[in-house]
Amino acid sequence: MESVLKISNLNLFYNNVQALYNIDMDIKMNHVTAFIGPSGCGKSTLLRCLNRMNDLIENCRIEGSIQLDGAEIYDKNQDVVSLRTRVGMVFQKPNPFPKTIYENVAYGLRCQGINDKKILDEVVEKSLRKAALWEEVKDRLGQNALRLSGGQQQRLCIARAIAMEPEVILMDEPTSALDPIATAKIEELIQDLKAEYTIVIVTHSMQQAARISDETAFFLMGELIEMNTTKKLFQLPNDKRTEDYITGRFG
């Protein structure tokens, strides 16, 4: 199976405190990869390395290599803007802009200078359909996105990321602010999306990781303890610490 992202020997420091230690990992194309581990284990930090969101944080230093389709993303010639169009992101809390539903989805395209109404209309519809939101909002695209429910807002955020046609979608605990029904919808959506996109999801819920992911990586104190197919990691973990965590002995 081809890998899209290849992380090798990645170390990350905030000021001089090390937050990630020697991470090596391959993320496979059209797979859902879940990052699990207790709070503060570095899973979100690693996720944010993959689209260089950590660049926004002052005094964050990164060593090592992350390759997207074989090209180093931390190369100094790498255009961060184009990287982020290829690696989309969905955040923990649904965070639509206080704009219309339509403008939320069109935001990224407009940033690319695409203002042709025909293209935008098309992409907005396609993205909303893919995010399983089209039927619910097609008659009110001009409405403020903040009036949608939490689950709808999060699907809108997914549509907004999809609109850029990224290769990879990063999701940082996308359902932690949602109720169980909305969560189920998002999980179902993730299953549909992996046919076209590679998905990396950080989750606090081991059940969620077990339900939706193909591969799971377990982190502890900034280290990647174990990564395997989800089935194997949950049924037959290699490492004692993984076993302790998934059986609920800590974390």
């Binding site: 969101m53 803007v81 184009s82 992101m89 809390k93 935001y107 990224g108 940033c111 990321a161």
Partner: peptide
């Protein structure tokens, strides 16, 4: 909210676009 900036950057918005539109 800081999240508006984050989202805008994550969608490939430049600093200037983020400031003017988000």
């Amino acid at each position: 909210p800081a999240q508006y900036r984050e989202v805008s950057f994550s969608l490939g918005g430049s600093k200037w676009q983020t400031i003017t539109t988000a």
